[in-house]
Design a protein around this nucleic acid. Structure first.
Lengths: 250, 250
DNA sequence: ACGACGCTTTGCCCTGGGGCAAAGGAAAGG
DNA sequence: CCTTTCCTTTGCCCCAGGGCAAAGCGTCGT
């Protein structure tokens, strides 16, 4: 597997700018990430109906997709790039609660308002739907509604997986788990091998696994020196799987 | 609000024993926690149909409801007591990923197997349904399916809330958040006031918020001494809300 | 090609909380 | 009623990781 090439640099605080462009959905049936997305539950007929209510949105790095507390009047399926899902804590800390990868579905909280914010970590594209259109569509397509439920449960599984990572574990265990978890997610998308893209910054990783940026960096360096991984631009290559798994278990 | 009175002591490792008794569901329409559960989406007709496929199950403290890795062939709605949702990590640690309170829906993972284990922290009752019966019923009752999706999203919200707690926060912030979060959940059930039942053990709390049992204990003691809370049997009474909220924000 | 900016790496010091263990206390069992 | 067992509290020590800051490095824009 090769690293994504056109991934821009990322930086810290989200800009106030919003979506860069909106155009009609071109051709869902040729969408390469559709198998990994909720749209896989749709047949040709439903798909063209679905196309009609969606728009393609592009986000430059650091652009906000939506903010915690805002009315959730649009939902998204990520088609390329990387979305950070995060909460800004009252003490100024940012807790990243998840990463939206291509194929991931975002933006349908329980209530009418978002419970976390989302911004683009890198140049990102997504399909955008008005909440009402989307819900109405889903209610008329039980299979799709079911798939949507699956996606929510999948996200819940991931969140619970993540909770086991965040606890009082050692830094190298957290980082090892993080790398393996990212690898597993990329594999669902494009069958990754030992190269694992990590398009997010060290700060993002730290805010996700609950470590200081310095500790994240030190830990990556240590794993590299120990020959477990090799740090490559915007990712890592796994050199010693058993050792990495062993570390992740600590 | 008064503390639950008949709550037994809890202890550490789950027993291999299973469900204690199974009997027909008596009368869902009189169920006191129904408003807080997925069953609230059902009208009288659907409710009696639903009753027919469920059984009431009782669990003594430490009894297992289901285990991670097992086939998920039954789902549950907790009606009384407390269920611990947890994962046993390879290093022997137990991470509690959630608490199942009365009204909570459990046991429908994305795949066919459970991704975490569940056991009764105290004497607990639940309505039990065969997965297939339940899914078939849900697919025939869109409103119910929708409510089920809401429950999954609610659980996801809670998990993401919990992720913000587990991060690198100070012990008193974690404990303060935990108390406030439990209070909010009890309020949905019985409109609690300043008394917050905590039927789980200190160890459970530690395994949930990511703190050592000793640190949990010390922190409760400190909050008590500072006059923020008062430790009472199987719970706390909140004496100083603003201070507690302030701490939770750190 | 160069400079500026932002991210990453690394060093140094320090503190919050973990590990361990003993004492105290409450509940269950005989 | 007493014993046993488990849970909680508390003390003591130590270390992993946080905070801070400087240096290194890659990237982007001019």
């Amino acid at each position: 597997m090769s690293m994504p090439t056109s991934i821009e640099t990322l930086s810290r605080s989200p800009t106030a700018n919003r979506v860069r462009g909106l155009k009609l959905l071109a051709n869902c049936s040729r969408c390469s990430i559709r198998p990994a997305s909720v749209c896989s539950a749709l047949d040709a007929g439903a798909l063209s109906e679905f196309e009609a209510i969606g728009r393609e949105a592009s986000f430059a790095p650091r652009m906000i997709v939506f903010m915690e507390g805002e009315r959730a009047d649009a939902v998204y399926t990520v088609t390329s790039g990387l979305v950070r899902l995060f909460r800004l804590l009252p003490n100024g800390q940012r807790q990243i609660v998840g990463f939206g990868l291509p194929g991931d579905f975002l933006g349908l909280p329980r209530g009418e308002r978002h419970v976390y914010s989302a911004d683009a970590a890198v140049g990102t594209t997504a399909c955008r739907f008005h909440r009402q259109d989307f819900i109405m569509f889903a209610e008329n397509h039980t299979r799709f509604l079911r798939r949507l439920h699956d996606a929510a449960v999948k996200a819940l599984d991931l969140a619970q997986e993540q909770m086991t990572q965040l606890g009082p574990r050692r830094a190298d265990a957290k980082i090892a788990s993080f790398i393996l978890s990212m690898r597993a997610r990329w594999m669902e998308i494009n069958g990754a091998g030992e190269s694992v893209p990590l398009p997010m910054s060290r700060q993002d990783i730290g805010d996700y696994v609950g470590l200081n940026i310095a500790t994240v960096s030190r830990t990556f360096t240590r794993l590299d020196r120990q020959g477990v991984i090799r740090i490559v631009p915007k990712g890592v290559r796994i050199l010693n799987f058993p050792a990495l798994r062993q570390l992740a278990e600590q």
